[in-house]
Design a protein around this nucleic acid. Structure first.
Length: 109
DNA sequence: ATTCTGACGTGGG
DNA sequence: CCCCACGCCAGAA
């Protein structure tokens, strides 16, 4: 089942994000070879709503801002999930981002 | 077919 | 660090 679909890859990475860790759309995009098209990753994540295994709340923009929190069920659901994992979020922004950052290019083969 | 928007990134100030 | 402007590709009206 070598599905090379774009969102398929995004799902694969999103599901592999470790607990208490976060990554950026651009990092995933680059890992997929679509560097510069980070928006497409966000678009793929939007379609990931059908997959409960996707940890979309662990995916933020490079600044650590929870840009996609508006797409979750509630308004602060994303932040609560992150804080529940030990990630400190202040003003929709992840603190200690450099420490929590998980780079698929570096962690995944 | 055209136009705008969008879960972004980068460069410059 | 923050703010502004441009570029990326796909989808919706």
């Amino acid at each position: 089942m070598a599905e090379t679909g774009f969102f398929q890859k995004v799902y694969m990475v999103a599901e592999q994000i470790p607990f208490g860790r976060v990554t950026s759309y651009g990092a995933i995009a680059k890992y997929l070879g679509a560097a510069g098209s980070a928006r497409m990753v966000g678009w793929a994540m939007n379609a990931s709503h059908n997959i409960p295994s996707i940890q979309a709340h662990r995916v933020v923009n490079k600044r650590g801002l929870l840009t996609g929190k508006h797409h979750f069920d509630g308004t602060n659901l994303m932040q609560q999930l992150l804080e529940s994992e030990g990630v400190k979020v202040i003003n929709n922004k992840i603190q200690n981002l450099e420490e929590l950052f998980w780079d698929p290019m570096k962690e995944l083969p």
